[in-house]
Design a protein around this nucleic acid. Structure first.
Lengths: 224, 224
DNA sequence: CTGTGCTTGTGAACGTGAACACGTGCGCCC
DNA sequence: GGGCGCACGTGTTCACGTTCACAAGCACAG
């Protein structure tokens, strides 16, 4: 791996947070200063070769015959992931899901404090959720700019998702996490990830169905 | 594709719900009886060849020169995904996230009604959430059995996740969706999917960081 | 200072999924 | 009833990610 090779595969990027989580969870009980790829693999639920290859993209931070220095690895991974500072986020849509996410402490704890809540419904503006006053979505540019927000979360109904995405982009937000069950498109220079909770369940349903025995109790007139 | 080829790739399975969603969203406005792979691809945000290949795994349900019959396709996809009937689910953990998920209508709407809520904390047992009384996790086997629940959702803190998973499996639940930020392992015959909201944000953070210019404002003593 | 053992780093093989291109077959028009 | 055009179905090619296997190299012991 030459000195400036910085093209980290997407699959690897998706695993780095898992390694990070594993290492953080480790610190408590067993304070070993060093960890082997094998052990880290076990903690993260992947295979050891993958761990080594993934970490090698960050640089040669391990010591042969010994393993990786836990503290140093944590530091390097945090730096690479951009987690050396907090990233304030704005949640758009203060319905059930939006409020849920706002109250869920998991974001703030891990470096993503909820800096603002916005909604399109004037009736909701001014409401306090999780100690934050809901503001109107028209103020988005000012809010994002003022608080230095780079990440937006879409928690609206499907119908509003695309328009909200457009407004987020217009407000200068360059990373979007979409919870609405709808396709949204953004400019190439904006990052977009989506989480559709119902889709996850439907995938489980498929395998469940599969196990229950193909075409149990279903009679279909197949021509061929 | 021979008659009984039923090995649907995982990547395809993950896209079927998206196609389904696209077709359902379509029904309203443009009631065309038929749809081309090209148009469906556009709606689902993928490419047309992929749509055709994915759908071909279900069987030859299209008509050359015409497209796919929307109604028939909906029926076949629903059948394949096991969505011809509802799948009641149990949510374990009635903290912020658990309550949030219970109140979020998105599950029930799409065929996954919340049939039960359980928690390990006796103080929470009896509470009403979303019109459902919280029960104790010790009752899980009886609850699952009584309501015919096959899918469980873990919405507990990370520390409890593995034990909850074990209990779900012991109660006869064979599909698990894990929201806790922890690795859980289950027997091979149990399906497991995980959603870690913070990990999604961390991935976004990586690309955000990347764009902001590598090592902006970070001074690291690199030896090599 | 040399040998030994252990774990990393990585080239190469492998497998899976994506993209392509075109043959195939159906409907429609004349 | 024949020909034409269109969109599906699919064999093939290609790219990506995973896995394997082993050489490289560090620490430590003697």
């Amino acid at each position: 791996m030459s000195e400036r090779t910085r093209r980290i595969p997407e699959a690897t990027v998706a695993r780095l947070p898992v390694y990070l989580r594993s290492l953080l969870g480790l610190a408590e009980d067993d304070k070993a200063a060093t960890i082997s790829s094998e052990r880290l693999a076990e903690l993260a639920g992947v295979n050891a070769a993958k761990v080594r290859k993934d970490l090698s993209y960050l640089g040669s931070y391990g010591t042969r015959g010994v393993g990786y220095d836990v503290e140093y690895l944590l530091f390097q991974m945090s730096r690479e992931l951009g987690l050396t500072h907090d990233w304030p986020v704005v949640i758009v849509g203060v319905g059930n899901l939006g409020q849920a996410l706002a109250n869920y402490g998991g974001f703030t704890d891990r470096g993503f404090p909820i800096a603002a809540l916005v909604d399109a419904d004037p009736a909701k503006v001014g409401e306090m959720v999780h100690g934050i006053a809901v503001r109107h979505i028209d103020d988005l540019p000012a809010i994002a700019d003022g608080a230095g927000i780079a990440i937006g979360i879409i928690a609206t109904p499907a119908g509003a998702a695309q328009e909200v995405a457009d407004r987020l982009v217009a407000a200068g937000i360059t990373s979007i996490l979409n919870f609405a069950p709808a396709l949204v498109t953004v400019p190439a220079e904006t990052s977009l990830r989506k989480v559709d909770l119902a889709v996850e369940l439907q995938i489980l349903s498929f395998y469940q169905q599969q196990r229950a025995g193909p075409r149990a109790g279903v009679t279909v007139a197949r021509t061929s």
